[in-house]
Computed example of a mutant assay.
Amino acid sequence: MNLPATDRRVLVSGASRGLGRAVAQAFAANGDRVAVHYGSRASDARLTLESLAGEGHVLVGGDVSDPAGAARVADEAGQALGGIDVLVNNAAVNDPHPLATTSYEEWAEQWQRHMSVNLLGTALLSHRAARSMIDRGTGGRIVNVGSRGAFRGEPDYPAYGATKAAVHALGQSLAVSLAPYGIGVASVAPGFIETERVAHRLVGEEGEAIRAQSPFGRVASAQEVAEAVLWLASPAAEWSSGTVLDLNGASYLRT
């Protein structure tokens, strides 16, 4: 059940842009073959695919919050790549919904959406990929993208913080149950990352305040987080299974 260092089959969910794109690029540069998943941003996902080094990469679309959709995504990726050695659960939604100014109807809708994509989607893809790894007897890796917000709180995005905390807990449960099959499971908990989606928040006074959260006076690049994901998926990181790796530039310290 030895995991190769390169030429792995890697499924990255939510890889159309931002961190997902950076993760896909990191694995491709490492010599792995990548299935680039997208939910609705097909044109962005094609740009990700075109940016990848090497050959043998594929594009896979689908709704991972739907059981049938998640199964199709994993199965199509596995069929196109010849299996899945590494799953990176990156697909997520993060829409503001502060309780004091959010109607009950919108509050319920936001919680259902965040639960469906962030938590259920992660659980569904993890089951499908892990069972494939178990059946092949080759072992593998699952790396979940969580968040600093799971620990410090997200007052404007409470469902996001709560579902990311659940993703961390899910990863630790799977780490214990899947270790006998040679499957390592770990999570990263990034702080603020500079991506297209949040670029508008990094200007002016809000941007200054966000950068000041870290004593380094900046936010993370997507490439920095992607390198950590790449390491957690590597053969050298097996003994890190079950970990939640903080990647927040000392902006929040857990005890």
Rank of each mutant, 00 (worst) to 15 (best):
A70V: 00
Q172E: 14
N90T: 10
D156G: 09
A70S: 08
S240R: 13
G82R: 04
R21W: 05
L11S: 11
S221H: 10
I193T: 12
G204P: 11
R9Q: 13
A179Y: 02
A26G: 08
D246S: 14
D32F: 04
I210W: 08
G78M: 00
R201N: 12
G20P: 07
R148N: 13
R197L: 10
E227A: 14
G249M: 07
Q25Y: 02
S103M: 09
T195G: 05
A77I: 04
D32V: 06
D66I: 00
V167W: 01
S214Q: 11
A26W: 00
N90P: 11
E154F: 10
P96L: 08
G61K: 01
V86S: 03
D246W: 01
S132Y: 08
S187C: 13
D85E: 09
V36M: 07
W239Y: 12
E208L: 13
E106V: 14
I183P: 01
R218I: 05
G83A: 02
D95W: 08
S187A: 15
F216K: 11
E109Q: 14
V203E: 15
L253S: 10
L81I: 09
V60K: 06
G204F: 11
I84N: 03
V229L: 06
V10K: 07
E205H: 09
T122Y: 02
G62H: 07
A250R: 11
A74L: 12
A92K: 06
E109Y: 03
I183C: 10
S13G: 07
S251R: 03
Q79N: 12
R9W: 08
E238P: 05
A226F: 00
Y157I: 13
Q223D: 14
S103W: 05
G54H: 06
L124G: 00
A35V: 08
A212I: 03
L52T: 05
T195L: 06
G18N: 04
A166N: 03
G182D: 12
P190E: 13
A186F: 09
P4C: 03
L170K: 01
G191E: 06
E205F: 04
L19F: 07
V185Y: 10
P180L: 05
A15E: 03
A162Y: 10
P158Q: 07
V117W: 03
G191M: 10
P96H: 04
R201H: 13
